[in-house]
Simulated assay, not measured.
Amino acid sequence: MMQDVKGNSEEYNDPILYDTENDFVIEVPFLSKWASKPNQIIIDLACGTGRVTLPLAKEGYKVIGVDLHTGMIDRAKAKAAELNLDIEWFQQDCCNLDLKLKSNLIYMVGNSFQHFLSNQEQDQLFTSVNQHLELEGVFIFNTRFPSTEELLQPNTEEYWRTYTDKSSDNTVDVYTISNYDSLKQIQHYKTIRKIKNNLDEMIGQKETNIYLRYTFPKELERLISQHSFEIIDIFQDWNEKPISNGSYEMVYVCRKVK
């Protein structure tokens, strides 16, 4: 689900855990509005385990899933087979796509855009997307909003959330530690999962690290324009609420103009 698999993949090395912690499909109704033709090819970049790919395929759309991470793609293939869904899967770097086809709709969700840490990687991504879109085709992606609250978090262990692991009935308390590098605009997150049994006894702990790039709206405006796209809309969520200074994320809808 990312480009530097060796150096930035800890969050994705356990696809089953990923599915447990990411069992939502809030993007699907929004994307369905742009997938106007059931027989059109839709490309899901950084598709992971098929969290969004599968629901769209179940609606009858022809979806192609692309991801660089072997474990995530293998998990996606297995899930598609269980559902008897005919989906093409490609293990490729989104910076250097070679799908031998073009689409009218490409999307990248789950804030995966933040895995492209350098200007060069962002440029390569947009170049690849442009090459695989038909003229007037649409590219939709989201990325977290670089708010003061988001970037200037204390670099101490902070409680995030608690969930129940359905496979074991254990309780998992999730904490994070974050450090922001202002020069590189990259946030390092350490996620700490403290696992407890039904007696509330600590029985294990799992830690993962990830690095995420935060890109500001005016930077994105320039980037999108430079790669021959125009911005159709910017929202603060998948329910199409207008973006504001208090936004948590940004959802971009872009059209290829040349």
Rank of each mutant, 00 (worst) to 15 (best):
Q187F: 05
S128N: 10
E201H: 09
F145I: 00
L17G: 13
S128H: 05
I16P: 00
K166G: 00
D123N: 15
E201I: 01
E11A: 09
I64Y: 14
N170W: 06
T143D: 00
T156C: 04
E21K: 12
L101S: 11
Q92S: 07
D98H: 13
L117P: 04
E207L: 09
E157P: 04
Y12M: 01
S244I: 03
H227L: 05
I234G: 00
R161E: 12
P217G: 02
N155F: 09
K194L: 13
D23Q: 10
E11F: 15
E82H: 09
E136M: 11
S118K: 08
C47I: 09
K6W: 03
L199D: 12
H227R: 12
V66T: 01
E59D: 11
D93C: 06
K256H: 03
E134C: 11
D14Q: 06
I140A: 06
E21I: 10
N8H: 02
M2W: 04
S244M: 07
E150N: 13
S182L: 09
I140S: 08
L223K: 12
P55R: 05
C47G: 00
C95H: 07
G110V: 07
T215F: 00
W34T: 00
L183E: 15
F235R: 01
M2S: 09
L220Q: 08
V172Y: 03
R144V: 04
K100R: 14
S36D: 07
G110K: 06
Q114A: 11
F30N: 03
N245R: 02
I43M: 04
P38H: 06
I87D: 05
L83M: 10
S182W: 12
Q153N: 07
I73V: 11
G7Q: 06
R75G: 01
P38D: 03
I186Y: 08
A80S: 10
V129K: 01
Q205G: 05
E219P: 00
P38M: 04
T191D: 01
G50E: 04
E59P: 00
E27F: 08
D169N: 15
R75C: 09
G50S: 06
T49M: 04
L17F: 13
L97H: 04
I73W: 03
E219F: 06
G110N: 10
E207D: 13
M250T: 05
P146L: 07
T53K: 03
I203K: 11
Y248N: 13
E207I: 07
F30L: 13
D233Q: 14
